[in-house]
């Protein structure tokens, strides 16, 4: 090969231009013939697709994030046109697009308003470890090992699977716990599938406060597992002026239709596990 290149550089090799031309001509001829055949076949064999699919596709976010479980927005549009899924499956759809898609499909879709995703855990380094994990830094792998190193079975492991998949790069690991920057979050839902603990929750984007704990254990047990976990004292529920908070399974549940973002619950919480999405 090297000898050939050297000989070529010295002009010792003559290029047989007639053969080069012949090869190019044969390839070009075949390209033209096959291209023409494909064009003709495409013209004669064009299959009419449902025009609704294109219209719906125009109204989708075109982010191709895959959060709906389909292979991109065009696949989702097809499923929508066939009535297989509701449009609300797409977390990124904003109000008027939902209404437009609903009118194309001729169905009523209850508009719940835009949402954002929050992570219902604030433990991180404040949650106790039950053993030292030295494996691969991946939540799924760690979770396979007896549910991860955290004493609390519903604690964020902080290995950042959600951070890795987030298409908007809005998740950060702060002090060993994932935190969503809700200003950037489009609620696409990709991280929901990535978390082995299913800690992601959707709240209305107008809401400020959310419960950052998922432990359904009794208060005494939580005390031994985590410094910031909810101990189900019920102070938030008792002090809420609008009665928006109820205690369900040892956790407060905020009814966002009643919440006025007053922040009393967060200030009363002795464990500081009701957090605000808005930075002060």
């Amino acid at each position: 090969m090297l000898n050939y290149i050297l000989a070529f550089a010295e002009g010792g090799v003559t290029i047989q231009w007639n053969i080069v031309g012949l090869s190019v001509a044969v390839m070009a001829g075949m390209a033209v013939v096959l291209g023409a055949v494909i064009l003709l076949v495409n013209k004669f064999c064009h299959v009419e697709t449902d025009p609704k699919i294109d219209e719906i596709y125009e109204n989708l976010p075109h982010a191709n994030c895959g959060g709906c479980g389909y292979a991109g927005c065009s696949d989702f549009a097809k499923a929508l046109a066939e009535g297989k899924v509701p449009a609300t499956k797409c977390g990124q759809l904003k109000g008027d697009s939902v209404a437009k898609i609903a009118s194309i499909l001729g169905v009523e879709i209850a508009d719940e308003g835009p949402t954002v995703t929050v992570i219902a855990c604030c433990g991180g380094n404040k949650a106790n470890d039950k053993f030292e994990y030295q494996g691969y830094c991946d939540c799924q792998y760690e979770n396979m090992l007896s549910g991860g190193r955290k004493a609390c079975s519903t604690a964020c492991l902080g290995d950042g699977n959600c951070k890795a998949v987030c298409p908007e790069n809005c998740i950060e690991i702060v002090d060993g716990c994932a935190v969503v920057n809700t200003d950037l979050c489009t609620s696409c839902g990709v991280c929901h599938g990535a978390c082995p603990k299913s800690l992601m929750e959707r709240i209305p984007s107008t809401a400020h406060y959310y419960v950052a704990c998922s432990s359904k254990c009794r208060g005494k047990d939580v005390m031994g597992q985590c410094k910031v976990g909810c101990i189900a004292c019920g102070l938030c529920a008792r002090n809420c002026p609008n009665g928006a908070i109820t205690m369900v399974d040892n956790l407060p549940k905020i009814d966002y239709s009643k919440c006025t973002n007053c922040g009393i619950c967060a200030s009363k919480c002795p464990r500081k596990c009701i957090l605000s999405t808005k930075k002060d």
Partner: peptide, 11 residues
């Protein structure tokens, strides 16, 4: 294969 696919899709 491209042509075959289109023909099959149609007919």
């Amino acid at each position: 294969v491209q042509i075959l696919e289109m023909v099959l899709k149609k007919f």
